[in-house]
Design a protein around this nucleic acid. Sequence first.
DNA 1: CGTCTCGTTGAGAGTTTTCAATGTAAGTGG
DNA 2: CCACTTACATTGAAAACTCTCAACGAGACG
Lengths: 191, 191
Amino acid sequence: MHTPLKQHLYKILPLSEEEYAEIISYFQVLTVSKKENLLEEDQYCEKQYFVITGCLRKFFVNSKGNERTTELALESWWITDNHAFEHHVRSQFYIQAIEDSIVLVIGAKAREKLLKEHPLMERYFRVIYQRACAAAERRFRYIDDYSREEYYQKFAEKYPRVVNRIPQKILASFLGFTPEYLSELRRKIRS
Amino acid sequence: MHTPLKQHLYKILPLSEEEYAEIISYFQVLTVSKKENLLEEDQYCEKQYFVITGCLRKFFVNSKGNERTTELALESWWITDNHAFEHHVRSQFYIQAIEDSIVLVIGAKAREKLLKEHPLMERYFRVIYQRACAAAERRFRYIDDYSREEYYQKFAEKYPRVVNRIPQKILASFLGFTPEYLSELRRKIRS
DNA sequence: CGTCTCGTTGAGAGTTTTCAATGTAAGTGG
DNA sequence: CCACTTACATTGAAAACTCTCAACGAGACG
């Protein structure tokens, strides 16, 4: 069950089996079904999630009442509301399962203890966050570089698994436009 | 000269004066004048920068030949192309001084050594990157939540220093629209 | 079989961009 | 310090893009 996290850790850190076993004991397994929320707006975000199987998303409800997806997390991705998590303030986001999923959970206090007891894990999370930053930087670049149509096309080429897996409504809200407009783009591309 | 970094470090880590002195020895001071590039497209990005005084930006040239600014770095901010920096590939970005600036520089190899000799610094960078992620998440939220007009207004309220300090052309390219449209918005708001 | 959500379609309205022209501020060399 | 040059900011009109709204069809699920 913990295998994906184990592999993820080993790719970044040299760990003994013993140390790995101790580290993994800080995590709990959680099963969530489709559409279930792991976090809701106005709640404190005390946890960080690592996706074993399935798919999560982070979204918020905008001023017009529409859901806007800001992040997708597939297998072996971390997800949380980092701002709320670090500063212990209420979240402005929801974290929801797109599919039935299995995730690993670690609470804020447990993570603090983990980092204290196993300083190597500082390196692990440093690398994880550094990569997340790099991904965000490239995403800003993409958004800016391409028209919505090109952006959708590039995304579909690069992540066909994602496009075919998640509802178009969610994909549209992630790419930054309306479902109707996404429909129009798809038709345009088809012909 | 190193004071801003010293304060930044001390806010995150408990350091002895000796350890601080060793750490700081990994950095070099660099003076750049307005419009000077610290990084150019197609170069390898071997360095990471910390702004002491002045202001830097990261931008790229899009398919239409326009400059799009993806990141601004004022005093006590870190900036680099994280993707190119980590993977030792050529960058798609420029890093340029908006004003005459003084920055601290650390190279990729020096940083690896620093992290090895002073594992505490893993924690420092973990926190830095975690905050950068949180900032990126909130930025995605803002972009999605508000119309361009509202986005500009919110930004101007929140960062008046920035708005009054940098050329509108750059501000427009950071906020994601054309300078002409920014002009129009400003007039609209004025009246 | 109903019910609900999701995806599609089309028309009209609102937004943002493009392009070209003008005005203005700032930097440079004499 | 002035004259010159260049880059930046503004304006307006037309074109392009994207959204809203309302309606319909298809599939999922109880």
